[in-house]
Design a binder for these strands. Structure first.
Lengths: 339, 339
DNA sequence: TTGTACGCGTTATCAA
DNA sequence: TTGATAACGCGTACAA
């Protein structure tokens, strides 16, 4: 249908190889005038090399894959954007596959990515999605020696991954509050499984300072949503010995805490300090600018791409690397008070 | 490196053709036992057909492309998800390219998509991005007879597209307020260019009912953000003859209106009705559930995929189709009052 | 500097 | 039911 190298060669009255050289060798090994003539004719004829054939031959596609479960999650959205940017810097294209929760889709896409059209794969998955369902695909890729890097903490698993230190994030944030004089610090999170790292960090900050931890200030709300957080906060604020600060397991939860505080006529940060995690865009729209912990997605993307490209280049089987990045505490008005 | 059809054929002691048949003809034209034997061996050897070669030969990749400028925009994120779902229903994979604002990237990705690896392309672009920069690529694709469909209103342009009726959305929403008895209805939007459709719909609702329109109630804030909206709202509410209802050009703006109302000690909807557009996730987290107009992205995706698949199947050059979908008014508490 | 011939991994045609 | 062989469109030795 469309014009091929063969056709173009005929029209230019040269051989296919010459046309190929005109495109690929950037001027070397070919007469400059011939080259120019071919390039002009190509433009005129609207010739585009077929990447399929090209890649089949060269074994390189210069395209990276990224799979994420949920692109509507803002974190993954900006991750995708960031990965694309970084990939572009290294002259790679990035194509994104959305797999949702369906295991079958995951299998299909991984096969798609492995089956010749991509040089490597980035697997974006939330930490709480780490379950046995992943292992099969990881094994597959490892067996076929297909380069891939996981974005997220895979624990001691024998794969390359880049992630943030969740526990450290919570530790730093809690420390900030403790060092500001707070003692009764609430924590609202979804469930002990999904928030394990953050809960641990929160507790360790107390232990480290030998400050007793009030168990009754840790509230589990199942789903980490704004509405659920509101209810939980009202409950916390109606306690005899109410907390002077509350941490939400993410910024949406923190948003709910802010709302509840207002409903209870409490000023933030004077009557109650509030903090969250993730530094989502929404924090800029809140009544009181929110203290939060950011996981700079740019670093994550850069490190991951770096690692992946290294694996693509050197096909040798080296040690698996686990890169853990430092989160960043962002102090804003919602905790900005000295007691 | 990895095991090919050739190798597998040797191991199974059959010809390549037989192996191919085992995989593709679903049982026809091949001995059931042979087939089973090959399939088992394939699994054992971890054989994956090379899609590159497959597609090169069959001219079909069963993969659709989608390009969007900004995946961090929640609308595009859910669009992507929706398109993926719909594509899957038709047994197509969808791969997403993020092109940002850089023209060069756009060019590259469109070339990537056209160069053999995709059967068709969906171009997602916000309406205010409609500018001359698109035309080149559209022309390219048309010249090469590459199937593509645009998501967004392309006006009288000679390409297939699917979009929502923005003007209708604003007309319906404004009508709802007028019919509830409101007369002084404010409108906060970014600029006359980007919000043209919505401004027109807003005005037409007044004209249709022969109700005079107060020009001073239309406020342009440049950037349609929450903070800007807050300021504009305070200004509106301090007027002599203040509005009894305010429409935000999107839900973020409406969010700012709600905040400002609270700051001015006005109850919503008793003292002030508020409404927005887009029905973003955030509306569920607001103090008062927000009346808004939804542009159900599922429909959009379904229609677009439909159209695209039709074009892929029947390569004949038919008339270009422009599909305009109906937005959906969602009435919630923020306007829920009878006067 | 250019052309010839082959191979990349697959499907499709034809004959056995 | 199976096998040999020719494409698909391109890069690259090797020869000219």
């Amino acid at each position: 249908m469309s014009v091929t190298i063969e056709k173009l060669a005929q029209l230019a009255d040269v051989s296919k190889s010459t046309v190929s050289r005109a495109f690929n060798n950037e001027g070397a090994g070919i007469n400059a005038r011939t080259r120019k003539r071919i390039l002009n004719l190509a433009r005129e004829m609207n010739y585009q090399p077929n990447i399929l054939a090209k890649s089949l031959r060269s074994k390189r596609t210069h395209t990276l894959g990224l799979i994420v479960t949920d692109i509507e999650n803002p974190f993954f959205a900006s991750l995708a954007k960031s990965v694309e940017d970084r990939a572009a810097e290294s002259n790679f294209h990035m194509l994104l596959g959305i797999i949702g929760n369906k295991l079958q889709k995951k299998a299909e896409y991984i096969r798609l990515f492995m089956a010749g059209r991509f040089d490597g794969l980035l697997v974006g998955c939330a930490e709480n999605e780490v379950n046995l369902s992943h292992f099969d695909y990881f094994l597959d890729m490892k067996r076929r020696n297909f380069p891939f890097v996981v974005l997220g903490n895979m624990g001691q698993l024998d794969v390359d991954y880049v992630s943030y230190d969740d526990e450290r994030a919570a530790f730093t944030l809690t420390s900030h509050l403790l060092d500001s004089g707070h003692r009764r610090i609430g924590l609202i999170c979804d469930d002990p499984e999904g928030s394990r790292g953050r809960i641990n960090g929160y507790r360790k900050a107390f232990y480290k300072r030998n400050i007793p931890l009030a168990e009754d200030l840790t509230v589990l709300i199942g789903t980490a949503g704004t509405r659920q957080a509101r209810r939980a906060t009202r409950q916390l604020l109606s306690m005899q010995d109410r907390p002077t600060a509350i941490i939400g397991v993410n910024d949406f939860v923190a948003f709910g805490i802010l709302q509840a505080a207002r409903e209870c006529n409490m000023k933030v940060p004077q009557d109650l300090a509030v903090a969250g995690f993730d530094n989502i865009e929404l924090v800029h729209s809140m009544d009181v600018p929110l203290t939060t912990v950011a996981f700079p997605v740019d670093n994550l993307a850069a490190e991951a791409i770096n690692l992946l490209l290294k694996k693509i280049d050197a096909k040798e089987k080296e040690e698996h690397r686990h890169i853990i990045l430092e989160p960043k505490l962002i102090i804003r008005q919602s905790t900005e008070i000295s007691r």
